[in-house]
């Protein structure tokens, strides 16, 4: 049974129920929810709220755990906010086996360090890649497209573009 003291905030977003927990309690809360019947971790991901004006965010990175109860078909999203360099949170890969690769992907893409993960390595990018591509301050990359505004700037002053 999840205790109310763990829950910082709760609400419904576009029909999806969610709760927020403090990042240091995330593992305890998920463990309690697993005991409540939320057996399946559908996915785990992160959202980077760098320069997000839509509301006042407690921290830059928001970790999301989408849980599902296969019997009652209820879903619950657990949010935890983390900051720091590197941001850290406890791993849940032993509670929910699918989290293993999800956590590796989140480490690869956002640089979140999951304490206690058995093999926290890059999963999608090459092992020697520098940076975490899905962070908002990481450029999209690619090449300048011809006839676009960027190309115009690059053509007139390539050293500045």
């Amino acid at each position: 049974m999840i205790v109310d003291s763990l829950i910082v905030d709760r609400g419904v977003s576009a029909g999806d129920a969610w709760i927020t927990v403090a990042s240091e309690n995330a593992r305890d809360a998920l463990s309690a929810l697993k005991g409540d019947g939320y057996q399946l971790l559908v996915f785990l991901t992160c959202v980077d709220h760098l320069a997000d004006q839509s509301r006042d965010w407690p921290a830059r990175y928001e970790l999301l755990y989408q849980l599902r109860n296969l019997e009652t078909r209820e879903q619950l999203r657990v949010r935890a906010f983390v900051d720091g360099d590197p941001p850290r949170i406890d791993s849940v890969s032993d509670l929910f086996p699918p989290a293993n690769w999800d956590e590796r992907e989140t480490y690869d893409m956002f640089g979140i360090v999951f304490t206690g993960h058995p093999d926290l390595t890059r999963i999608l990018m090459p092992d020697d890649w520098v940076g975490h591509p899905l962070r908002r301050d990481y450029p999209v990359g690619g090449e300048v497209v011809e006839f676009s505004e960027e190309h115009e700037a690059w053509r007139t002053a390539p050293e500045k573009a």
């Binding site: 999209v140 990359g141 690619g142 090449e143």
Partner: peptide, 12 residues
Amino acid sequence: TGGVFNNYALLQ
């Protein structure tokens, strides 16, 4: 040319 994916991950 990289197609619709003009980004960090693909060889253009």
